[in-house]
Nucleic acid binder design. Structure first.
Length: 914
RNA sequence: GCGGAUGUGGCGGAAUUGGUAGACGCGCCAGAUUUAGGUUCUGGUGUCUUAUGGCGUGGGAGUUCGAGUCUCCCCAUCCGCACCA
C-alpha cells in the first residue's frame, strides 16, 4: 500500500485551493461574517516555529468557521517598518527597503508552504506607500481633531538606538530592545493624547466590552493605566524669593492630612530647580539623585534622602508651618511631583521622617488598638481604622474621613477631589529613517504646517546604503537636504520637513481595519470595514499585552470619532498563545550548539553497570536513559575536565553528543528548556521540519502537546508522533477507498457494534467541535487519536458500508483544520464530493450521543468497589437494588448495615454503611 | 512590597455543576515483523504488596455520603507592576 507522501500532496492541494480561490473573503454575502486575525509578523528574515504555532491556531479557527458556514476573513500582512532593517543595512551594506522586501518574499513563500487558509489578495506591508499614505492622512486628521499635539518635554532617549522611546518601551529604566540605560532629554516631539481616553480605556476593561479577553491581560492594562482617586490641593508657601506662592500636591490619603509632618518635591521639580540655581548644595543633592539608578535593585538599596529647602507650607486645618524637602523618592512624572508626607501611615515617609527626626503623628487607630497609647515604631500602619488626633475627623472610620476631608478642602477652596492616572501620553516621534514620515513642514514664518493632501504621501528619500554606516537619523543629514528643504505650503518661503518618523506601533494600531477595507482614497470605507470588524478572534503573544493592544484600542477610538467605524474596541476575543521552547545544548567550551548539530545515538542499556555508570545516571536524573552513546560515555569517565565541567553545571543534564565540523565527536551538555532564541541557538527551522515530516505534522504537533496558552517544548519525537498519526489516518482511510461514492443510505436498524461505532462517531463530532470552539486544540487532537483507534478495524460490507463511510468521512473532516493537506488526500481517496475544504462541518446527531446502557461505578463508603450496567433512565429504586446486589459490593457489605444509598443519576452510586 | 496565576505518573498533559484520578501523546518495558539498526505493529506501564487489598493530585486542617475540584492556613514556582504619594 502506498504511504502518505506529504512532499507530493502538499503542493498539489495548495494549488487546488489557489485555483478555486477558496479563501477569498467577502464572496458569500448570505453567510454570517467572521474575522479571525493573528498578529502580523515582522519580516525579520525567515519564519520561526513560534510563527507556525501562532498561524496554525488561527488557521484551525479559520477553516473551522469556514466549514461551519461563515464567510471568513483571515488575512496576512507585514509589520515592515522598524529598526532591525536599519541595523541589517549597517551590517551588510544593503538598503533597509531591499532587505525588508527581500525578507517578505522569502517569508511569504514559507507561510504558503504551511498551507494556511489565507486571503492573500489583501496582503500589504506597512512600508508600502499605499498603506502609509493613509496613516499620514490619519495623522493630520487626528492633529486637526486635537488627538495629537507637539510639545517640548523630557523624553526617554535611547543612546544606542539614538532615538526617543515611548514610556511603554522603557523597561526597568532601559530601552526595550537595546537594553541601554535610557537618558532623559528635553525635546520637542509629537504625542498621541492617550491620557484623554484613559478613563474609557479603563472602563471598557470592566464593563463587558472585553469579556473575551484573558483576565491577566486586562489586569496588566488596568495596572498600566493606573487609575487612583484622590485629592489635588495646594499648600500656601512662605519663604524668601519664591518662584511660586503655592505648592500643588496629589494624595490618595487626604484622611491622614492631620498626620502631615513635611512636604516633599521631586528632585526635578521646578521648586527644586529654582533653589538649586543659587544653592550649590541643593544642586549637588539633585545631581546625586539623578545619578541614582532606576532599576528595581537600585530602588531596593536606595536610602530615603532629602534636602531641606528654605520654605515652609501652611497646613490647611492646623495652620502649622510644615518644612519642605527635596526628596529622592518622589517622582516628577506621577501626580504633581510633590507630596504631603504622613510618616505614621506611609512607609517611605516614615523612613524619611526617622532619618531627619521629623514628627510621626498617628491619626488612624487600628481596630484592636487603644487610641490613647497607639504609636508607630518602624512600620507604618496602612490598614483601616478610626481617626484620632484629627480635629473634625476624630472618631470617623478612615474610609469615611477620606471624602469628608476632600469636602472640607473643596469648601475652603484649596483643592478638589480628582482622578489621577499613571498612564502618560504616547510619544510617537522616532529619530529613524525606516518608518512612516510625519507629514509636517516647519516654517519660520508659519510654524508647524501640515503637508497638503495632494502632496501625500511624504515618501522616504532614496538614499545611499552607505548612509546607514553612520549612527543617527539619515533624514537629518546633508545627503537628504533636497528632500528636507521644501517650500512652505502656506507662505511659499523655504521651510524644513519634519525629519522624525512615526513609532512602528502606529503602523500596527490600525492594520486590522485596513485588512477589512482597502479603498484608494481613504484609510477605510466605513460600511465595508464595519461589516467585518471588530476582529472576532485575535491571536498573538502575551508580550504585546500592553504596548500593541493598548495602542490599538486607543487608535480605534480615534477612528471611531473620525467616523471610520462604529466600534470602540477592535478585538472581541483575544487569545494569547504560549511560546515554543527547546532544550539548550553547550559543548565543553561553553559554546551553544544548534539542535541540528546534536546527534542522538542509543547505547545498549546496562552495558556499563559499574559505579561510574551509576554516578552518571544519577547526574542524568532520568534512570535508564538509553540515549548515552558509549564513546561519549567513556570520555565522560576518563576525561577529568569533562567531569569538572559537569560538576560546574550540575543543574544541567548530561547526554547525547554532537559531531563537530571537523568530524570529531564531542560531548554536549543538555541545558534547561528555554524559549527559543538565536543567542542560545536552541532554534529549529520549521522548513527543515516540514521537509522531514510534512507541514501538516509540524502544524499538528504545535497544537497537540500543550494547551495553546501554555509554552510548548519542541521535540523531534513529538513531530514523529504527529507524522505517525498522519500515516495511520491515511492507511485507515485507504481501507475504505471509494466508500463515499454512491454509498447506500444509512439503515434504520443496525447491529450493536455498528450502532456503537456510530455513537463514537457522533460523540467525537460533538467533542471536537466544542474543543475547537473553546481553543482546546490539544484535547481535540486527543479525541482524534481515540477516534482513529475506533476506526481501525471497521468493516465495509453490507450494512457496515454507510457506517464506515460516515466514520471515515468524519475522521477526515475533523482532522482537516489541523492537517488540511492530508484531509484533502483522504477525502479524494474516500470519493468525497469536491474539496474537503469546501465540505460543510459534520453535525452531531443528538440522538446518538446517549447510550442504551450505562456503566455506573458503585462506591461503598466513598471507595469504588464495583460497577453495574443499567438503562440511563432506570428508576432510582431499581438502580439501588442492582447496586446492592452487585457481587463485589455485596462482599464489602458483609456484616454491615446500609445507612443510606446516594444515587446520582447517570453518574455514580454511593452506599453508606457501617 | 502589591496584584495575578500555577502546582496531578519518568515527561507534556486529561478529568462538565464536587461523582470511576491519570484520557491522549512522548518515553520506557515485553513480544511480533523486518534487512544489522533506526522503521512498523501488538500488549503493558501511578505506587506499595505474593495477593484480597492499601496508598496516591505541593504540605496541613476543614466542609461533604463523596474533594484534584469548595473553605482556611502554609510551602514552592512562574508572570505582571512597583519609591505611583
Amino acid at each position: 500500500m502506498a504511504r502518505y507522501n506529504p512532499a507530493a500532496a502538499e503542493p498539489k492541494w495548495q494549488k487546488a485551493w489557489d485555483e478555486k480561490d477558496c479563501f477569498a473573503a467577502g464572496r458569500h454575502s448570505e453567510r454570517p461574517k467572521y474575522y479571525v486575525l493573528e498578529m502580523f509578523p515582522y519580516p525579520s528574515g525567515k519564519i520561526h516555529i513560534g510563527h507556525v504555532r501562532n498561524y496554525a491556531m488561527g488557521d484551525v479557527i479559520a477553516r473551522f468557521k469556514r466549514a461551519r458556514g461563515f464567510d471568513v476573513l483571515h488575512p496576512m500582512g507585514w509589520d515592515a517598518f522598524g529598526l532591525p532593517a536599519e541595523n541589517a543595512a549597517m551590517q551588510t551594506g544593503g538598503h533597509p527597503k531591499d532587505w525588508t522586501y527581500g525578507n517578505i518574499e522569502v517569508m511569504r513563500e514559507q507561510l504558503k508552504r504551511m498551507g494556511l487558509a489565507i486571503d492573500w489578495s489583501r496582503e500589504f506591508a506597512t512600508c508600502d506607500p499605499e498603506y502609509y499614505v493613509h496613516q499620514q492622512k490619519l495623522f493630520l486628521e487626528f492633529l486637526q481633531k486635537g488627538f495629537i499635539e507637539r510639545r517640548e518635554s523630557l523624553v526617554n532617549w535611547d543612546p544606542v538606538e539614538m532615538t526617543v522611546l515611548a514610556n511603554e518601551q522603557v523597561v526597568d529604566g532601559k530601552g526595550w530592545r537595546s537594553g541601554a540605560p535610557v537618558e532623559r532629554k528635553s525635546m520637542s516631539t509629537w504625542f498621541f493624547k492617550i491620557t484623554d481616553r484613559a478613563e474609557d480605556l479603563l472602563d471598557a476593561l470592566d464593563d463587558g466590552r472585553l469579556e473575551g479577553w484573558p483576565a491577566h491581560v486586562k489586569e496588566m492594562q488596568r495596572n498600566w493605566i493606573g487609575r487612583s482617586e484622590g485629592l489635588m490641593m495646594a499648600f500656601p508657601l512662605s519663604g524668601d524669593d519664591l518662584p511660586q506662592d503655592k505648592l500643588p500636591i496629589y494624595t490618595t490619603r487626604p484622611d491622614t492630612l492631620y498626620g502631615a509632618s513635611f512636604l516633599g518635591v521631586a528632585p526635578d521639580h521646578p521648586l527644586a530647580t529654582h533653589f538649586a540655581e543659587k544653592d550649590p548644595e541643593a544642586a549637588a543633592f539633585i545631581a546625586e539623585c539623578q545619578a541614582q539608578g532606576t532599576s528595581e535593585a537600585d530602588i531596593e538599596k536606595a536610602e530615603k534622602k532629602g534636602f531641606r529647602l528654605p520654605v515652609t507650607g501652611r497646613h490647611p486645618f492646623t495652620d502649622e508651618e510644615l518644612p519642605v524637602y527635596i526628596a529622592n523618592f518622589i517622582l516628577m512624572q506621577y501626580g504633581t511631583g510633590a507630596i504631603f508626607a504622613c510618616p505614621a501611615h506611609d512607609q517611605r515617609d516614615l523612613d524619611f521622617a526617622r532619618k531627619y527626626k521629623l514628627n510621626v503623628i498617628p491619626v488612624v487607630c487600628p481596630p484592636d488598638a487603644d487610641p490613647s497609647s497607639f504609636e508607630v515604631a518602624d512600620e507604618a500602619y496602612v490598614g483601616p481604622g478610626t481617626m484620632m488626633m484629627s480635629g473634625f475627623l476624630d472618631g470617623l472610620p478612615a474610609e469615611e474621613a477620606l471624602p469628608a476631608a476632600i469636602k472640607k478642602i473643596e469648601e475652603m477652596g484649596w483643592g478638589e477631589g480628582t482622578t489621577n492616572y499613571r498612564l502618560r501620553d504616547w510619544g510617537l516621534s522616532r529619530q529613524r529613517y525606516w518608518g512612516c514620515p510625519i507629514p509636517i513642514i516647519h516654517c519660520d514664518n508659519c510654524g508647524v504646517v501640515p503637508v497638503p493632501d495632494d502632496q501625500l504621501p511624504v515618501g522616504l528619500p532614496p538614499i545611499d546604503a552607505s548612509e546607514f554606516k553612520t549612527p543617527g537619523n539619515p533624514l537629518d543629514r546633508e545627503s537628504t537636504r533636497a528632500w528636507r528643504e521644501v517650500a512652505c505650503p502656506q507662505c511659499g518661503e523655504m521651510a524644513r520637513r519634519e525629519t522624525d518618523t512615526m513609532d512602528t506601533f502606529v503602523d500596527s494600531s490600525w492594520y486590522f481595519a485596513r485588512f477589512a477595507s482597502q479603498p484608494e482614497d481613504q484609510p477605510v470605507e466605513k460600511a465595508e470595514a464595519d461589516a467585518w470588524m471588530p476582529v472576532q478572534q485575535y491571536i498573538g503573544g502575551i508580550e504585546h499585552a500592553i504596548l500593541h493592544l493598548l495602542y490599538a484600542r486607543y487608535f480605534t477610538r480615534n477612528l471611531q470619532e473620525c467616523g471610520y467605524t462604529e466600534i470602540s474596541e477592535p478585538f472581541t476575543n483575544l487569545f494569547t498563545q504560549g511560546m515554543v521552547t527547546h532544550e539548550t545544548y553547550r559543548d565543553l567550551n561553553g559554546n551553544w550548539r544548534l539542535p541540528e548539530d546534536v546527534r542522538y545515538q542509543s547505547a545498549p542499556a546496562g552495558e556499563y553497570p559499574d559505579a561510574g555508570y551509576q554516578q552518571i545516571q544519577e547526574w542524568v536524573g532520568r534512570g535508564a536513559h538509553g540515549g548515552l552513546q558509549h564513546t561519549l560515555f567513556e570520555k565522560a569517565l576518563s576525561n577529568e575536565s569533562f567531569l569538572e565541567a559537569y560538576y560546574k553545571q550540575h543543574e544541567e543534564r548530561f547526554g547525547y553528543h554532537y559531531v563537530g565540523a571537523n568530524g570529531l565527536e564531542l560531548p554536549v551538555l543538555i541545558g534547561p528548556i528555554e524559549k527559543m532564541s538565536k543567542s542560545k541557538k536552541n532554534v529549529v527551522n520549521p522548513m527543515a521540519m516540514a521537509d522531514a515530516y510534512g507541514a501538516d505534522a509540524v502544524r499538528f504537533f504545535m497544537l497537540s502537546d500543550s494547551p495553546p496558552e501554555r509554552d510548548v517544548e519542541w521535540t523531534e519525537a513529538g513531530a514523529e508522533g504527529a507524522w505517525r498519526f498522519a500515516n495511520r489516518v491515511y492507511e485507515t482511510v485507504a481501507k475504505g477507498e471509494g466508500i463515499m461514492r454512491g454509498c447506500a443510505a444509512m439503515p434504520t436498524e443496525l447491529s450493536d457494534d455498528l450502532m456503537a461505532l456510530r455513537r463514537t462517531t457522533h460523540k467525537t463530532i460533538a467533542g471536537v467541535t466544542g474543543d475547537i470552539e473553546h481553543f482546546r486544540f490539544n484535547k481535540a487532537i486527543a479525541r482524534l487519536y481515540e477516534f482513529l483507534g475506533a476506526c481501525k478495524n471497521l468493516r465495509s460490507d453490507g450494512d457496515a458500508a454507510p457506517v464506515a463511510a460516515e466514520a471515515l468521512g468524519v475522521l477526515t473532516q475533523l482532522t482537516a483544520p489541523f492537517m488540511p493537506h492530508l484531509a484533502e488526500e483522504c477525502w479524494e481517496l474516500l470519493g468525497g464530493e469536491g474539496l474537503c475544504t469546501d465540505a460543510a462541518w459534520p453535525e452531531a446527531n443528538e440522538a446518538l450521543l446517549t447510550e442504551d446502557v450505562v456503566t455506573l461505578p458503585v462506591q461503598v463508603n466513598g471507595k469504588r468497589r464495583g460497577e453495574i450496567k443499567v438503562a440511563p433512565d432506570a428508576a432510582e429504586d431499581a438502580v439501588k437494588e442492582a447496586a446492592l446486589a452487585q457481587r463485589d459490593v455485596a462482599r464489602f457489605m458483609e456484616g454491615k448495615t446500609v445507612r443510606k444509598v446516594i444515587v446520582v443519576p447517570g453518574r455514580i452510586i454511593n452506599v453508606v454503611a457501617g
